[in-house]
Computed example of a mutant assay.
Amino acid sequence: MANGGRLAVASAVGLRDDFDGSGLRRLARLSGDANQVRRLLALAVIYDGGARHAAAQVGGVGLQTVRDWVLRFNTSGPDGLLDGKAPGPRPVLGPEHK
């Protein structure tokens, strides 16, 4: 181990500062998407000073998933917590065959 026998611990990714816990709870009340609601509520726990493992319990997920949500939220705001639409299967026929 390179740190004199100690394990390296990754630092937590901070949340953007243009939102707060009460704002995320307000957005959760207005959202019609259940997955976005639980993600917003989980991040509200962190904004309110709660631990990441408490946010993971609220969201029903693991710590890595909470970290992924934080990264998505930091990049795209509340819309980043919506489920993306899967692209679906590739068409069998190409444009030249249609």
Rank of each mutant, 00 (worst) to 15 (best):
Q57K: 07
S22D: 15
A86S: 08
A54K: 04
D18P: 00
E96A: 03
A42K: 05
R52G: 07
P89E: 10
F73A: 02
G50E: 02
P89R: 12
G84E: 14
A42H: 00
D68N: 14
V92M: 12
L7T: 06
V13T: 15
P91F: 08
L82V: 11
R72N: 12
L24D: 02
R39T: 04
K98R: 15
D79N: 12
G88H: 09
V66N: 06
R6D: 15
G5T: 06
D18E: 09
G5C: 02
D48E: 15
A28V: 05
L30I: 07
H53R: 12
Q64E: 15
S76E: 14
P95A: 05
L71P: 01
R29G: 09
Q57R: 11
Q57H: 06
A42Q: 01
G62H: 05
G94R: 14
G21T: 04
A10F: 05
T75M: 13
N3C: 08
V92E: 14
A44N: 06
Q36D: 09
R90Q: 10
I46C: 05
V13D: 10
G88E: 04
T65S: 12
W69I: 03
N35R: 15
G23H: 02
V66L: 11
S11H: 10
K85Y: 10
L15N: 03
G60L: 04
V61T: 11
P91E: 11
D18G: 00
G60H: 10
L82H: 04
G32T: 15
T65F: 08
G88C: 02
L7D: 03
V45Y: 00
L81E: 01
Q36P: 07
L15S: 01
R29F: 14
V45T: 02
H53K: 11
V70Q: 09
